[in-house]
Design a protein around this nucleic acid. Structure first.
Lengths: 259, 259
DNA sequence: GGGGAAATTAACCCGTTGGATAAATACTGG
DNA sequence: CCAGTATTTATCCAACGGGTTAATTTCCCC
């Protein structure tokens, strides 16, 4: 859209920060056309790149659009990060770093095993909801058969802390009698991620197929309840109220019917 | 790779079929450079397009490569199907048609409710395994926010027969006492698809993250067993042998350990 | 057996896009 | 305050890629 003029738009003013110094310098001497801000520039480039790659995939992403949306000149991308693929890998690594970092903040050790699992599902679900670009980036990378990820030493060393967390939670749950069986933590982790990921990542096509908006508030709430109930029922053997309604067949609330 | 010569390679000979007539005509008169076969050409184009779109996404797909792999001239794509987007939509519609068609062949009505669910999971899993392009196409379409699907009247009218099938299976299961609760069939359908889809669609990145090959035979078998056990345990309240091993923590079989 | 529509090929067009180069401008240390 | 470096801008371009035009060949039917 704003292809032409945004491209040449300098990071002009940057009012919010460094404003004092900018004003000082400006009135001290001639009016400045632009201002240095390498770190800020790099961040804006990566953010714009993330949005672009998430919205269009690797091949569909346009370097010029990234530059425009970063309020930078195209040359800046190559200067601060590298070529398109470098840019893409940097974005991917940043995305993994971010989720791993948030994961680490979530301590499940102090919770009852069932509560810990619920919290894990809740976190995963909401993280995906809050970061839809992450889903898109993962899909893009899988389309490329993880070609870039394989070359990234950085990501390979960032193991999800969840697997070990889950292992101890499951062990504790079995010992306390809350859980009936010990499940492979990797399988459980993948299953929880799957339940959340697929629903959100494929909500566009699913919404068309089922003729109802899967992203509206009620649908999201219903989904979260379903996932928690499904996993906990399997682990504990006790079904919760939210999992299902009485056996009479077609009596879902109106909101859930296909339009 | 074979960009240059494949492009101009005519659908020469087509030895397998129409061979008799081809031979007749060839020896009757001058040697033929190529042979008419509009339906076959269309099929080969769509097949090549499917592979190309699945491997590279919509933006990454190359029209010339499709032509080359179809053994056709680039002009043929436009002559028989349309431009790149038409081609893409045709492929997408074909993919949906195919899975819906196979789904219809699976009758769950005559099975015990738990068996029916197991069969449903088994089918979904194996269909995705046998048709990896389908997963890639769905991801690509979701990246495009289902933009094309929304415009396809064809796909919108192809409802998955599974939803109603599942509804009756669940009802029967509740009535027979096999299932403890009535679950929303749409949620259950999405969950089953999710468990299968995510694992396979994201196997590339997951394999890197976990440092083990998720697609090798043992891993696939283990996954299928896990999914069936998870869903059935939630529905019936009874855990099966495959779901988990005894409570002792780190004693997964060696095959399951990260390398 | 040949006229003409259908199918296919060959060659070209032109906007786009990733990337490169060199010049201009701001900042920093001495 | 100035010299040298860091950062940004203004252009350029060659390759690519989707799509088109026109000629060529095949085959069906009268």
């Amino acid at each position: 859209m704003n292809k032409l003029h945004s491209q040449t738009l300098p990071c002009m003013l940057q009012l919010a920060r460094r404003d004092q110094r900018a004003i000082d310098l400006a009135k001290a001497k001639r009016v400045q056309k632009w201002q240095r801000d390498p770190e800020g520039m790099r961040l804006r480039i990566l953010e714009a790149a993330k949005q672009e790659f998430a919205a269009h995939g690797l091949a569909g992403a346009r370097v010029d659009r990234i530059a425009a949306n970063a309020g930078a000149n195209k040359r800046m991308l190559y200067y601060h990060v590298g070529n398109k693929e470098d840019l893409y890998l940097a974005v991917l690594e940043g995305a993994y770093e971010k989720i791993r970092s948030e994961e680490r903040g979530l301590d499940l050790e102090h919770l009852d095993p069932p509560e810990a699992i619920e919290r894990l599902i809740d976190f995963t679900w909401n993280y995906f909801l809050r970061n839809p670009e992450f889903l898109a980036l993962l899909n893009t990378e899988n389309l490329a058969k993880a070609r870039h990820l394989k070359r990234s030493t950085k990501v390979k060393s960032m193991h999800s802390p969840f697997v070990e967390m889950i292992r101890t939670v499951v062990t504790r749950g079995v010992e306390s009698g809350d859980f009936r069986v010990a499940v492979d933590p990797v399988q459980l982790y993948i299953s929880i991620a799957a339940l959340c990921f697929f629903y959100l990542s494929n909500s566009a096509t699913l919404s068309v197929i089922f003729g109802r908006d899967l992203l509206k508030k009620e649908a999201r709430d219903e989904r979260l309840a379903h996932m928690v109930a499904l996993v906990l029922a399997a682990l504990t053997g006790k079904s919760t109220a939210d999992f299902g309604k009485p056996a009479t067949s077609g009596v879902r609330p109106p909101a859930h019917q296909p339009v």
